[in-house]
Design a binder for these strands. Structure first.
Lengths: 242, 242
DNA sequence: GTTGACTCTCTCGTTACGTAATACTTTATA
DNA sequence: TATAAAGTATTACGTAACGAGAGAGTCAAC
């Protein structure tokens, strides 16, 4: 069989078969004297296998290893691939969640600009830095900024996620297990910014309600979130006294 | 601020900033006389937005449109993106399912070769063709083969999926709604291979249990699946008499 | 003035092919 | 049998979002 026959039969393009030949994934058994590729039945079967694994999302390189090495452990490959697929789905789920929240968000707050969305999500180039310097000292803030610089946007993402989570449980009691577990994560996250003692953590929480700018930004995630966090942070501080 | 500062601050690489400059996504406000890129605060904020949308999985091209055009409808963009994400997840889910089944499969049948896995999944280059020719006539089989050639591997995938689904409900009654709805899909799928009358469909089902080779292949998906399908196909034929 | 850290602009490599462009071979038709 | 049509071959550029150099210029400190 020649390329087009094979291509039409299994539903791939001629170029694809050329490509598979190029990279040594599927080299036709024979070649006519004029240079035409001639595919055998065995070639066809191999192609079926290749397409099967492709459907499963394996890369051509991996497929090559799988089908060309009889010693290759398919089970293990499948397991590993399963893992990566699960991780992919996890990431996708989080993306979908965030998009959904953003859609909700935008609907509620009549046309918020994206800049506004970001205010209060991090402590980087923000207007509270001066106060922070007064409150906790220059070197702490500097160290914090430096750390943030190293952590990058992942931490921003985490804070964001945590905000959303906290908002979703803000109706619960501030000393409930859920609330305390979430606020503990918040505490841990803040450790990336400086060395907070439980007491400093408490007063930061108080600032969330006393400072309108904080309140406004935090309550974007849900009415009353700032108060809820403040309470929960208070409880957390009580429980973690030395 | 110069590139590395910005890069370290937000956690991207210098090359990335160069790239964003290249494609006109984030062009620094100023340039020093020696050609150094100088980023303003506004540039930084824009970068935040860009990274936000990137986290959501938008392409740089799309992000460019979003952040550069104030008239661009963000809501609509988000909605559309939401859709594509859902579709992505759907595909991923199906891949995961298939991988899981394959793992199960492989575990059960001590080292089945991949060729074996494919036997009986399609009617292409299979040993039943001769019988099929005797049973339904040459032109039907030819037409069938041609159609399969056009449909390609998607249909194989569908058949596969349906096999798995049928296996999962094989404990139910063959005239239950689930069984009949699934078997109706099977009937529709087979229409791609030739013109089956309900009666031909019934006798095909009978072949599934009478012919050991069919039985063996089908029961790979689950003990007793062939019998179940035969029964269900019989019921289907009864109900679809003219 | 020299070192070291930083910057610049190329350019190639990555994945899995799509899409020509150009030239040759086989098949079908007149 | 000549020619047109269909099929095939190779070559090479394009895709998305950068990573990884190479080679050369710039800036601050010692």
């Amino acid at each position: 069989m020649r390329v087009k026959e094979v291509a039409d039969l299994v539903g791939v393009s001629v170029r694809t078969l050329h490509h598979y030949d190029e990279i040594g994934l599927l080299v036709p058994d024979e070649t006519s004297e004029s240079g035409y590729r001639l595919y055998s039945n065995a070639n066809l079967e191999l192609l079926q296998q290749i397409l099967f694994f492709k459907e499963l999302g394996f890369s051509l390189q991996t497929i090559k290893e799988i089908v060309h090495s009889p010693t290759f452990d398919q089970q293990e490959a499948l397991q590993m691939h399963h893992q990566t697929l699960l991780e992919k789905r996890h990431r996708l789920d989080k993306m979908i969640q965030t998009v959904e929240k953003t859609i909700q968000h935008d609907k509620g707050e009549i046309q918020m600009t994206t800049e506004e969305k970001f205010e209060g999500f991090d402590f980087r180039s923000n207007p509270y830095e001066q106060e922070a310097r007064e409150r906790w000292g220059d070197e702490a803030v500097n160290r914090s900024n430096q750390k943030v610089a190293q952590m990058g946007p992942e931490i921003q993402k985490e804070m964001n996620d945590l905000y959303f989570h906290l908002a979703s449980i803000r109706h619960m009691s501030s000393d409930s297990e859920e609330a305390q577990s979430a606020i503990a994560k918040w505490y841990d996250l803040l450790q990336s910014f400086g060395d907070y003692t439980p007491e400093a953590f408490r007063s930061l929480g108080e600032m969330y309600v006393s400072d309108k700018r904080f309140t406004k930004n935090i309550d974007r995630f849900g009415e009353g979130l700032a108060t809820f966090m403040c309470d929960a942070m208070g409880v957390y501080a009580d429980r973690h006294q030395k």
